[in-house]
């Protein structure tokens, strides 16, 4: 049985405080048997009900993954399992979009009023897979000397202020899907408010010092309360505030080993 320590925090950006906007980011995670599911979403600042969109999208993809993870069996051919995982991620995105469409109809708002990015990661049976539409990124470390890897990257349009959302008709054109062999030891998902410190713009690579520090911290800190407080302080701290006034979300997960005191046994 594989167990995980997970910590996720969303904080309201100063820009949102100033403009009286709520925090429009959302995040969630779940563990079902040996399967880890992590998600986050960043509601568009320009969308009237972005926080509904991001919250519902996260709930839906996590629920979709849970329902498919219950009782799934590793395919005989490992290749099949990889394809199955990627297919399930795709299905999760579609179910989130369908739910947004239903909500928009029920609340009589335009679908674009719920515009949100969506990031989803899953670790299952020796594979780590990720899916994303829009900004933010998913990074992982599989351990050993492989270092920190980006599974997905922030959407890059021609201009920095262009964005894509799952509410778009053609969102699948922008859907990044990635699976790697091996169960990640550590994972991080984050919204674009965290990007300036997390991604080196020059190279597009994740900031290794930051993520190694964060993963080490997850490994060393057994109390969920302490982890949440430390991550909240990081996200609301002045070093990040200097670089971004947007909402910020960070979801961290670390696989338990025999040295983690805080792990459920």
């Amino acid at each position: 049985m594989m167990n995980w320590l997970c910590t996720g925090v969303s904080v309201q950006g100063h820009g949102h405080v100033r403009q009286g906007m709520p925090c429009q980011d959302a995040q969630g995670w779940a563990q079902v048997n040996d399967t880890l599911i992590l998600a986050c979403a960043d509601g568009a600042g320009s969308a009237a009900h972005a926080e509904w969109g991001s919250t519902l999208a996260v709930d839906k993809v996590v629920a979709h993954m849970i329902s498919h993870a219950v009782g799934w069996r590793m395919a005989k051919d490992p290749e099949d399992h990889q394809a199955y995982l990627l297919g399930t991620l795709k299905g999760a995105f579609q179910s989130a979009r369908d739910a947004l469409t239903t909500l928009a109809a029920r609340e009589q708002v335009a679908l674009r009023d719920l515009a949100t990015t969506l990031l989803l990661a899953v670790v299952s049976d020796g594979y780590t897979a990720a899916a994303q539409v829009g900004d933010g990124a998913i990074v992982c470390s599989v351990g050993g000397h492989e270092g920190i890897k980006a599974l997905t990257t922030p959407f890059q349009g021609q201009y920095i202020n262009e964005a894509v959302f799952i509410t778009q008709e053609n969102y699948t054109d922008y859907l990044q899907l990635q699976a790697i062999e091996g169960s990640a030891r550590h994972l991080a998902l984050f919204s674009d408010g965290f990007e300036p410190v997390a991604i080196k713009y020059a190279t597009g690579e994740p900031n290794p010092v930051l993520f190694e520090g964060l993963f080490q911290f997850m490994n060393d800190t057994s109390s969920q309360e302490v982890r949440t407080e430390a991550v909240t302080r990081l996200l609301t701290g002045k070093r990040i505030a200097e670089r971004s006034d947007d909402d910020k979300t960070l979801v961290l997960a670390t696989r338990c080993n025999e040295f983690n005191e805080g792990c459920p046994s």
Binding site: V209, E212, V226, V231, K238
Partner: peptide, 15 residues
């Protein structure tokens, strides 16, 4: 003592 200071991981970039 209790809450790790994660901002440590960012300061070397600035300086």
């Amino acid at each position: 003592n209790v809450i790790p200071n994660l901002e440590d991981t960012l300061e070397f970039e600035d300086n």
